[in-house]
Simulated assay, not measured.
Amino acid sequence: MTFSLVARCAETGMFGVAISSSSPAVAARCAFARAGVGAVASQNVTDPSLGPLALDLMEQGMTAAAAVAKVREIGRFIDYRQVLAVDSIGGTAIHSGPNSLGIWTQAEGKDAASGGNLLANDRVCQAIVDGFQAAEGHLGDRLIAAMRAGLAAGGEAGPVHSAGMKIVDKVSWPVADLRCDWTEDCPIENIAAAWEIYKPQLEAYVQRALDPRAAPSYGVPGDE
């Protein structure tokens, strides 16, 4: 009931997760990223604790492959889980348990890994990775392009209702954390619309946190 992408921007060092599902609020449970460390998606009969665990292991020096192997070793009911990771040098790894739901598959490429379950077909995840590799521009633009490619390839077996995109950079908080927790329309397009509004302001929001004296105004009432 989910398809996702974890990715690294080789040029900027940013990490991102993009995810969509027929379930509500999928990004709240499944998307994890840490600046300078990596990005993880934990999905399919989700155990949200596996995301921070994998990031902790990578922060301690493990590669994505070693971290996912350790998660597979110590995680509970791991046969029901899918865990995707990308590390600080662009290495990727995926665990898909044999009890993953419906048609499930996975795909890896340079700086990117995709996994999904209850899919319309077994080509969706490769389409997501290919979409990411073919896209240009900001990491957020590439994540959106990848998710659109996955949806165009068939997406889930049924309609998707929630989506999210999380991006981390050089600070300890996500520089973008956009979510559509439920809609009868396309949640990926909702996220894309929010990204078009947020993207031009992203750097200013970071600047406001670091030093508001140098931050630009956006002309809202009371903002001078």
Results as ranks from 00 to 15, higher is better:
residue 208 R to E: 07
residue 112 A to L: 03
residue 43 Q to S: 13
residue 103 I to K: 06
residue 116 G to N: 01
residue 154 G to V: 02
residue 223 D to L: 10
residue 144 I to P: 03
residue 87 D to E: 10
residue 127 A to H: 02
residue 98 P to E: 04
residue 178 L to P: 13
residue 4 S to V: 12
residue 117 N to Y: 09
residue 16 G to M: 03
residue 46 T to G: 09
residue 54 A to F: 07
residue 188 I to M: 01
residue 124 V to M: 02
residue 34 R to W: 11
residue 136 E to T: 15
residue 203 E to H: 14
residue 134 A to M: 02
residue 100 S to L: 12
residue 223 D to N: 09
residue 69 A to V: 06
residue 6 V to H: 02
residue 223 D to Y: 07
residue 105 T to V: 06
residue 91 G to P: 10
residue 207 Q to A: 14
residue 40 V to C: 07
residue 172 S to C: 07
residue 68 V to S: 05
residue 143 L to E: 00
residue 63 T to G: 05
residue 145 A to W: 07
residue 120 A to M: 07
residue 149 A to G: 07
residue 36 G to I: 11
residue 119 L to Y: 00
residue 191 I to Q: 00
residue 87 D to Q: 05
residue 98 P to V: 14
residue 6 V to N: 01
residue 50 L to A: 05
residue 183 T to L: 08
residue 197 I to S: 05
residue 177 D to V: 13
residue 149 A to Q: 04
residue 26 V to P: 01
residue 77 F to V: 12
residue 94 I to E: 04
residue 180 C to P: 08
residue 33 A to S: 10
residue 11 E to N: 07
residue 81 R to D: 04
residue 20 S to V: 15
residue 131 G to T: 02
residue 11 E to Q: 14
residue 106 Q to N: 08
residue 157 A to R: 14
residue 45 V to C: 06
residue 176 A to P: 08
residue 21 S to K: 09
residue 140 G to M: 06
residue 207 Q to T: 15
residue 36 G to R: 03
residue 25 A to D: 02
residue 30 C to E: 06
residue 184 E to N: 13
residue 59 E to C: 13
residue 94 I to L: 12
residue 122 D to G: 15
residue 148 R to V: 09
residue 77 F to C: 09
residue 175 V to D: 00
residue 101 L to N: 05
residue 146 A to I: 05
residue 135 A to P: 08
residue 165 M to R: 02
residue 92 T to E: 00
residue 31 A to L: 04
residue 96 S to H: 03
residue 74 I to L: 11
residue 173 W to H: 08
residue 169 D to Y: 12
residue 27 A to Y: 03
residue 77 F to N: 14
residue 67 A to I: 09
residue 194 A to T: 13
residue 60 Q to W: 11
residue 186 C to N: 14
residue 80 Y to A: 10
residue 99 N to P: 04
residue 9 C to G: 04
residue 44 N to Q: 14
residue 202 L to G: 06
residue 125 C to V: 05
residue 51 G to I: 08
residue 129 V to I: 04
residue 74 I to G: 02
residue 133 Q to E: 13
residue 168 V to F: 04
residue 117 N to F: 07
residue 110 K to V: 15
residue 11 E to H: 11
residue 188 I to Y: 00
residue 89 I to A: 02
residue 200 P to G: 12
residue 81 R to P: 11
residue 66 A to D: 14
residue 218 Y to C: 09
residue 133 Q to D: 09
residue 120 A to D: 03
residue 157 A to I: 15
residue 117 N to G: 02
residue 213 R to H: 12
residue 56 D to P: 06
residue 218 Y to N: 09
residue 101 L to A: 10
residue 210 L to Q: 13
residue 96 S to F: 03
residue 21 S to N: 07
residue 22 S to I: 10
residue 182 W to N: 04
residue 155 G to V: 08
residue 85 A to I: 10
residue 133 Q to A: 15
residue 98 P to H: 11
residue 145 A to Y: 05
residue 140 G to Y: 01
residue 44 N to C: 15
residue 110 K to T: 14
residue 114 S to G: 10
residue 200 P to L: 12
residue 60 Q to A: 15
residue 197 I to M: 09
residue 57 L to D: 01
residue 119 L to Q: 01
residue 18 A to P: 05
residue 129 V to A: 04
residue 144 I to W: 00
residue 181 D to A: 11
residue 102 G to M: 12
residue 17 V to C: 10
residue 117 N to L: 10
residue 175 V to L: 06
residue 15 F to Y: 11
residue 202 L to M: 15
